[in-house]
């Protein structure tokens, strides 16, 4: 009985100590990790989408509440005017979620550019969505309000050969950014005005 008690106590104390240490460390490093992620993963993707941007979109970011979710948005300035906003969403791909970033011009509601950020698709097939810019560049110039579909499903987007599921995932993600954009448009334009001051 005494043995059992000691075991329970030791294990509990150890676990509690470990949990406390880790949660403390997590809180301490969370901000830094987020900065690192922005710098090394999302930053390059955004820079690629917003070519010729005059500000640093990663520094000019803000978040908005969408129902229970907090979403992050990045602002792009062209010719000194903040008129572009970058949204993020994801779709179900072949090997998990495919993250997509879409930059939308607030003046005429068209897509400025799109880029795949995170994915776990098959190298050489689905992974081409990220590696080969030809596929995502199809979204350029299309109105954001559209439902994006691959040609097989009656849409406009040419699927990558051998990667229909990934192509569908990217289209679904793009459609989702569209709906987020529509829903939050008033708030977004309010925020952009602040950046234009």
């Amino acid at each position: 009985m005494r043995d059992l008690l000691i075991m329970v106590v030791v294990l509990t104390v150890l676990s509690a100590f470990s949990g406390g240490l880790l949660s403390g460390l997590r809180n301490a490093t969370a901000a830094r990790i987020e900065v690192q992620q922005l710098k090394f993963v999302k930053g390059p993707a955004i820079k690629k989408i917003l070519q010729g941007v005059s500000n640093d979109p990663i520094a000019d970011r803000f978040s908005l509440k969408d129902g229970d979710m907090v979403r992050k948005f990045f602002v792009g300035k062209f010719d000194g005017k903040a008129n572009t906003v970058v949204l993020e969403s994801s779709g179900k791909g072949y090997g998990g979620d495919v993250g997509l970033m879409v930059a939308v011009n607030m003046d005429d509601d068209t897509i400025v550019g799109a880029g795949v950020t995170t994915h776990s698709e098959t190298p050489g097939l689905g992974a081409m969505a990220k590696d080969n810019p030809a596929f995502v560049s199809q979204f350029k110039g299309l109105p954001i309000a559209e439902m994006f579909k691959v040609t097989n499903d009656g849409g406009k987007v040419n699927a990558m050969s051998g990667a229909t599921i990934t192509s569908r995932a990217v289209c679904a993600a793009a459609t989702q950014t569209g709906s987020i954009y529509q829903k939050l448009k008033p708030q977004l334009s309010e925020k952009l005005k602040e950046f234009n001051k």
Partner: peptide, 30 residues
């Protein structure tokens, strides 16, 4: 550490330090 649960205790300790490593690496050597 009681000898009957030593492996469990070792694993808790090791896992803690592994997560510490992971967090530190994310923060400083991404």
């Amino acid at each position: 550490i009681p000898s009957k649960v030593r492996i469990a205790c070792f694993i808790i300790i090791i896992a803690t330090f592994v997560v510490v490593t992971e967090l530190l690496m994310q923060a400083f050597a991404y």
